[in-house]
Each structure stands twice: as structure tokens, then as C-alpha cells.
Simulated scan of single mutants.
Amino acid sequence: MARYNGPKTKISRIFGEPILGNGKWLGKNSNPPGQHGEKRKRKTLGEYALQLREKQKAKYTYGILEKQFRKTFDEASRRKGVTGENLIKLLEARLDNTVFRMGIAPSRPAARQLVSHKHIEVNGEVVNVPSFQLKAGDVVTIKEGSKTRTSITSVVRAKNPKFSWIDFNETELKGTFITYPERESVPENIKEQLIVELYSK
């Protein structure tokens, strides 16, 4: 299975929320994709369908395929604490997600591309693995040779102050992953408990 590169609006219409970016096409008259839209859908989803839907939403949101998502869940279940919250923390600590949160890239796919193309350093070393797990205190910077590329620096924006678990200086193009975020600080509308129930079957 390849990574999804199709229309973002289609995925947003499936879940009824802009999980892949701009939601300007989502309105009260937006129907799910397909020839008959909502008419061919069951009015109420069963327990398994709701759990599967939530997992798919999380995978699309963070741009992860099934095998990698399952490995992340297994790691979350091994750690102390609430498995669902651990899962969100691990997803947020991914390098590509952190690059996006810092404002270095306008979207997670763009952040993934920056990392894959070796434009990002962690603690002074180039890291080209988007799923790289950051630890508290790790410093993320744009590689020195890439700082002169306007295609990269022109899209850098100030960090959203809501993301208190990371710090970023847009002048120096340097940021720090301070700590794992608390669940209530992560704005994504994901019901992680449903994912835990799905994998616990």
C-alpha cells in the first residue's frame, strides 16, 4: 500500500473535518464522497466501524501507514501511563510532525519532504527519517546549507504559542523539543481510546 496522495478534500469529507489542511470546502451541505453520498451510508455506525474510523483518521492526520502506526501503538502500550495518551505523545514527537509544529513547514507532508531531503538537523546531525522520535531537549534546525534556499525559508512562520511543548526561533531557524505534550494541549480531534479498544480485540 502506497502513501495516500489523492485529493485532500475527499478525505476531509469522509471524516467531516479538515484533517488534511484547508477545510474551506467543508460546509453544512458537504456530503461524504461517492455517487450517492450520505444516502448510501448507514445512519449509525457500529462499534467496530467507529473504532476503525478513528484509527484511519489518526493515520491520515499524521501521514502514517498501518505497519508503522501499529509499531507506534505497541511502543505506547509498553510505556507507563495511559496507552492512548502515550500514542498521541509518540505521534507528536515524530520529527516530521515537530518540524510542522515549529512552523518550518506549512504542512506535515511538506515537513516530511524537508526531512527526507536532508534539510533538517537534530542536535547538529542530519536526520532524514521522518519517523525519528525526538527526546526532551533535542534541538532541531534547518541545515546550514539549506538556510540560503528561499523555497525553504520563505514558508517559515512563527510557532503557534499554543504548542508549549516546543520552542522555535524563526530568526535563527532553530527550535527545541522541550517535552512530550499533555493530551489536552494537542488540538487534533482524535478519540484515542477507540483506537486502544480496536487494537485490544
Rank of each mutant, 00 (worst) to 15 (best):
Ser185Phe: 08
Leu20Gly: 00
Asn169Gln: 01
Asp96His: 13
Phe163His: 09
Glu188Phe: 10
Gln68Val: 03
Ile195Val: 14
Gly6Asn: 06
Val115Asp: 04
Glu125Ile: 06
Thr9Trp: 14
Lys159Asp: 05
Ser154Asn: 08
Thr150Trp: 12
Phe163Asn: 07
Pro130Ile: 06
Pro130Tyr: 09
His117Phe: 00
Pro32Lys: 10
Asn97Thr: 14
Gly103Pro: 13
Ala158Trp: 02
Leu95His: 03
Asn123Cys: 07
Thr150Gly: 08
Ile64Gln: 01
Trp25Arg: 15
Glu170His: 12
Leu87Lys: 11
Asn160Glu: 05
Gln56Phe: 07
Ile104Gly: 00
Ser77Cys: 08
Ala136Trp: 02
Val127Met: 08
Ala76His: 09
Glu184Leu: 06
Gln68Gly: 00
Val186Asp: 07
Ile14Leu: 14
Ile64Gly: 00
Gln35Asp: 10
Tyr60His: 08
Leu20His: 03
Tyr48Asp: 04
Arg3Cys: 01
Lys57Ser: 03
Leu45His: 06
Asn29Gly: 04
Asn97Asp: 11
Glu75Asn: 10
Leu91Pro: 07
Ala110Cys: 07
Ile64Leu: 09
Arg42Gln: 09
Gly6Glu: 10
Pro161Arg: 10
Lys10Ser: 15
Pro187Met: 12
Thr179Asp: 15
Asn128Pro: 09
Lys201Trp: 12
Ser185Gly: 02
Val99His: 09
Leu50Met: 12
Gly103Met: 07
Gly175Lys: 08
Arg157Ser: 01
Ser200Asn: 15
Gly16Leu: 09
Arg42Ala: 06
Lys71Ala: 15
